[in-house]
Design a binder for these strands. Structure first.
Lengths: 225, 225, 225, 225
DNA sequence: CAATAATCGAGACGGTACGTCACGTCTTCTT
DNA sequence: AAGAAGACGTGACGTACCGTCTCGATTATTG
C-alpha cells in the first residue's frame, strides 16, 4: 500500500528502527487536518479542495497527496481527529432519561459547525463507500456500543421488553434525528428528542400479560418518562 | 429570475398568449432529463457532468444551462420527472399493514437504481439548500400527505392514540429507513420494515382505559407524555 | 446566389415588377449599417459581433444574416455607406500642392473615428480576400483615378517626368501614410505629408538634359513648395 | 504583472539563484511556438485557436495561458522566435543597390508562408496595441537601425543629401511595399522594388552645387525644401 | 376580400472556443 | 526521504457568439 495510515508516523514502527530520511512532519499533518476542518466548517463539501487545504495549511499539495489518497480519506481523518464533544450516556436509572439526554447532546453537535462536517461526510460517503464505512466505524459504532449497554440496563430494570431488537430500536430513535438533520423538513429541538424517546421506547415496553399484577413496579418505573 | 421552471414550457402560460421567439424544444428537455437519469443510475453524483449530460442527450451545453442553473436543479428535476414507482398507501383496515406495505415499496425503490439517484440528491443537497428543498417539496411532502391520511384512519379506527404527533411518528418510521439507506450499517429488508412498523406503531397505541384490568398501569404510565 | 446585394432592395428591380411578399425594410437595413459603424468606431474588429450589431439595431439576428453572408461583407457595406468625407484633389497648378492637400485630408480621416473603420477593414481583409477587394474597389481605386489625373496634369505642366510610373509614385506617397497608420511607429502630421510629397515628387521630376534650357519653368514651378 | 516574458525562463535570472518549484518546461515552450507558427502558416488569424495550438503542441491549454495572456502575445512571440530569414543590408558601395537588394529579400519573405504570419500580426495588431508594438520593437526597429547605417553610408559617399529625413525616406520605400503587401492592388516584384528604390532615392540626392553647369536649375529648385 | 408570400422581431437550437479552476503528477532545490 | 514550491497535462466549468431554425405578426402582391 502506498498511503500510510495518517495516524502512524513512520518514526515509531514496531521494531524500534526508524527509516532513513527526513521524518514526517507532525506539524504539517496537524495543519492539514485543522485546515480541512476549518474549511468544512464554513463551506460545503464541494467547496473543499485539496489545493485550498494545502494553501491554508501552508503546505505543499504533494504533502497532502502523500498521506491521504483522496478527499474522502482526508475528511474522514479530519473528522476522526476532531475532538467530538462528549456524547456519553448517563446512567440515571431510567432508559428514557438516559437516551434522551444523550440525544440532546447529539443534536447540539449536529446544530454546531461540527454538524457541517458530519453532513459533509455523509454526503461524500454516498459516492465513496470507504468514507461511509469510516463514519460507521469511527463514529457510529462506538456510540452504539454504549447505547446497547444503556438499553440493556433498561431491560434488566424491566423498562424494556426482553426480546426487543436493539438495532431496530436505535434506528427508530436516531434515524428520526438523522432524517431531520439531513432533510431539514423540521426542527431538531430538545422537546422533539424527548417526545421521540418516549414514543419509541413505549413501543418497546414489556407486553402486559392478562391478570398479571406483578409488573406494576415496571409500570411505575416508566412512569417517570 | 433567469431560469424558468423547467416544467413550465412557455407554450401554455395562463393568458393563452405565447411569447415571441422559437418555443422551447420539448424533445430537448426530455432528452436532457432522460440522459441525466441514465448517468445518475450508473455513476455517482460527482461523475455526472453537465457536459456529459449534454453530449448523451445530443444537445448543446448552453441548452442545459439555459433552463437549469446548476447540476443540483437538474438532478432534482430529473428525479421529480422520473415516474417514481408507485408508493401508494393501501387501505387494508390495519395501520400497521398499510404502513408496512408502503414502506416495503419504498425500500424496493431505495435498493433499485433509483436509489442511487435519491442518495445523490440527498448528498448534493447537503451543500445545496435548494436541492434539498426540492427533494422535500417534490418527493417527501406529497407522500407525507398520504401518510397523514393513513395514520388518521388508524386513529379513527382506534388503532392509534388520538393526540399522537404524526410527524414524530413518521420520522421514527422513515428515519430508520433513511438512516439504514444512507449509512448502510444494516440491511433494508421487508422483515425489518415489518418489525419497525410494529415497534413504532405500538408506541402510539391508545392508552388503556380504566376498567380494563391489565392495561391500567400502562395507561397511567404514558399519560404524562 | 442567396445573398442579395444589400444596396438593391427588391422593390425596384429592372422590369418594374415587384415580387410578392413583404418588401425589405429599408429602416432595418440602415439601422444595421449605422449600428455596425457605431460599434466599429468605438471598438476593434474583434469586438464586433453580429449579435451585438443586431441588438443595437433592434433587429433580429436573422435579418442581418439574410442580407449579409458574413461579418466582412457587413463591414464592407457599412464602410461603403459611410459618407467618407471629402477627399478630393484640388487643382492649384502645383502637383505638390494638389497631392499634399489631398493627403492632409486623408490623414485627417485616418485620425478620426473613421480611421478605426478603415483599419478594421484592412485588418479583416487579411483573412478575407473579398473584403480587401471591396476596399480596393470601393475606396482605393476611385481615389487613384483622381490621383492619376492630378499627376498627369503635373506631367503636362512639366513638373513630373513624362514616363514616370504613376502607380509606383502613388504607392510611395500613400504607402508611407498607410504604413504609419497601420504600424504607428511615427505620427501622421501635416508636416510629414508635405515633406513626403516633396521628397517623392522630386524624385519624379524630369531629368535634366545637358544644355537644355527648357526646364526653367519647372524650376520655377517647384520653387513654390 | 502575472505573465512573465516568455523569453525569460526563470532558470537563468540574474542572481544565479533559481526560484523554487518545478522549472518551466523549455520543451513545452518551443512546442507551443512551433505549433503556433505551423497553424498560422496554413490558416488565418481567426482560425488560430489557443485550443488548437495546445492540442497540436500536445500541451495543456493552461500551460499556454500561464505564459501568454492572449492570442496576440502568443503570435508576437512565435513570430519573434521564428528565425526570420536573412534580411541584411549589403554594403556594395551603392545605396540604391544596398536598399534594393534588402527589399528584394523582404518581399521574398512577404510572399512566403512567413508572409501570412506578418499579415496576421499586422491585422490583429489593429485591435491590439500591444501586438503592433511588439511587431515594431521586435521586427521593424532592428531592421530600421541597419537601414539607417546603410543610408548614412550613402550620405558620406555623397549619394544622398546631407539633411535628408531618414525616417521619411524609409517610410516611402517600405510603405510602398507594405501597402502592396496588405492591400494587394499590385504585384510585389523585384522590378518594382528596383524602380521604387530608384524613384525615392533620386528624390534624396544632394542638391546640385552652383558652378556645376547642368544641374544648377534643379539645385535651386529644391533649395527651399 | 381572401389567399399567398416574403419579411420582420424574437429567441431557442446544436455547436465551438473561450479563459478559469482544480485535479493528481512531476521536477526542482532545501531541510 | 520529506518538505514547499510550483509547472505540467487533463478535463469540466459556465459564458459568449456562431449561424440556423422555428414561431406569431406584419406588409405587400395576386387572384
Amino acid at each position: 500500500m502506498h498511503h500510510k495510515s495518517s495516524t502512524t508516523t513512520h518514526g515509531a514502527n514496531g521494531n524500534g528502527k526508524r527509516p532513513p530520511g527526513r521524518p514526517r512532519s507532525e506539524q504539517a499533518r496537524l495543519a492539514i487536518l485543522r485546515s480541512t476542518l476549518n474549511i468544512l466548517g464554513k463551506a460545503g463539501f464541494s467547496d473543499l479542495t485539496i489545493e485550498g487545504v494545502a494553501d491554508r495549511a501552508a503546505v505543499g499539495k504533494a504533502t497532502v497527496y502523500r498521506w491521504w489518497p483522496n478527499k474522502g480519506a482526508l475528511i474522514a481523518d479530519a473528522f476522526a481527529s476532531s475532538t467530538t464533544p462528549k456524547l456519553r450516556f448517563p446512567d440515571t436509572g431510567s432508559v428514557h432519561t438516559d437516551m434522551s439526554q444523550q440525544m440532546r447532546q447529539l443534536i447540539k453537535v449536529f446544530c454546531s459547525p461540527q454538524g457541517r462536517i458530519v453532513s459533509a461526510i455523509l454526503a461524500a460517503g454516498q459516492s465513496d463507500p470507504e468514507l461511509i464505512t469510516a463514519f460507521r466505524e469511527r463514529f457510529l459504532k462506538p456510540r452504539r456500543r454504549e447505547a446497547y449497554a444503556t438499553l440493556r440496563r433498561g431491560i434488566l430494570r424491566g423498562e424494556l421488553r426482553r426480546g426487543v431488537d436493539l438495532d431496530l430500536l436505535l434506528d427508530s430513535l436516531y434515524g428520526a434525528i438523522y432524517m431531520r438533520f439531513l432533510i431539514r423538513h423540521d426542527r431538531l429541538t430538545g422537546d422533539f428528542v424527548d417526545r421521540l424517546s418516549a414514543l419509541v421506547l413505549s413501543g418497546a415496553r414489556p407486553r402486559r400479560k392478562f391478570g398479571s399484577r406483578s409488573r406494576a413496579p415496571v409500570a411505575r418505573a416508566s412512569a417517570r418518562h
